[in-house]
């Protein structure tokens, strides 16, 4: 079980619990504004961009090369950017806070 907190661009904070699946799917199922996941989670559309809170970045981990490239589509990319379809929900990411990119 992992608790994950999303903060949307209008500063609304939502904490959700899940045991499996992708972080994107969790966000979409719960209607988190700004996470669209149009491609269904295959790292093709860059519509699930989040900024991981710097202190949580280590447990979330670095993006893969293709993900890094895809993130460049977005002007708001920074060193803590991830596409959350590529983040698997596991116990090890419990407590993570993700800010939805604008």
């Amino acid at each position: 079980m992992a608790k994950i907190t999303f903060i949307t661009s209008d500063n609304e904070s939502t904490t959700l619990e899940a045991t499996s699946g992708s972080v994107m799917q969790l966000a979409v199922d719960n209607g988190i504004a700004g996470i669209d996941g149009d491609c269904g989670g295959v790292c093709s559309c860059a519509t699930c961009h989040v900024h991981v809170l710097p202190e949580h970045f280590k447990k979330i981990g670095e993006p893969s090369e293709i993900e890094k490239d895809m993130l460049e589509l977005d002007d708001n990319v920074n060193e803590y950017s991830r596409l959350c379809c590529q983040i698997e929900v596991t116990n090890s990411i419990d407590g993570a806070v993700l800010r939805v990119a604008k």
Partner: peptide, 12 residues
């Protein structure tokens, strides 16, 4: 093909 960078640069 297996080249997200080209896709992204092309898009821009």
């Amino acid at each position: 093909v297996n080249n997200a960078k080209a896709y992204v640069i092309g898009t821009k």
